[in-house]
């Protein structure tokens, strides 16, 4: 099993709250995603065994929701906003800098499995542009220097 016992237990608990088993698909996917940072076919099969819903139904639902990543990704998900305010204030330069520093392209993951870089649409922090969301946290008013420091910090596990 890829899913941990803890996750499976949580999924069972969630599933028991719904009158229809199918309703447990999205909460289960969310729990699996929280553990692993991604979902894929093997996970669908495991969930399907736990909540007793056909694998197909889970695969369909997961593929519909683009915010479930379908591939394992880095420990830190770097989401650079590239909407208008950020773009005007140099979001592209930030992405370039990150690409250069991490030696990856947008949408890729570093070999050490630490960083995944993507650009995203507006994160609602226009007044502090340019900005980046790393996992659940915002980092705002970015400059190259600030960005380098941020990366250094993450690499050293801070």
């Amino acid at each position: 099993m890829i899913l941990s016992e803890k996750t499976v237990k949580k999924i069972r608990e969630k599933a028991s709250k719904y009158p229809k088993r199918k309703a447990a698909i999205l909460p289960s996917l969310t729990l699996a995603y929280k553990q692993l940072g991604y979902v894929d076919n093997e996970i669908y099969i495991e969930i399907s065994e736990v909540i007793n819903v056909p694998q197909l139904e889970i695969a369909e639902a997961a593929s519909f929701y683009t915010m479930f990543p379908k591939k394992p990704r880095g420990k830190y998900l770097l989401q650079v906003c590239n909407n208008i305010s950020c773009a005007l204030l140099g979001a592209d330069a930030m992405v370039d800098r990150l690409e250069e520093k991490l030696a990856i392209k947008r949408g890729e993951t570093t070999d050490d499995g630490l960083f995944t870089l993507i650009s995203v649409e507006c994160l609602g922090s226009c007044c502090t542009a340019p900005m980046i969301q790393i996992n659940d946290d915002f980092h705002e008013n970015l400059t190259r220097k600030k960005l380098d420091k941020l990366l250094e910090g993450l690499k050293n596990g801070k």
Binding site: N41, P54, E60, T66
Partner: peptide, 19 residues
């Protein structure tokens, strides 16, 4: 449950269950 609709919007595709 061996054929389904995946993705969404204009990218929707009919396909067999993954694998």
């Amino acid at each position: 449950y061996d054929i389904g609709a995946f993705e969404r919007g204009d990218l929707t595709e009919i396909n067999a269950t993954p694998g």
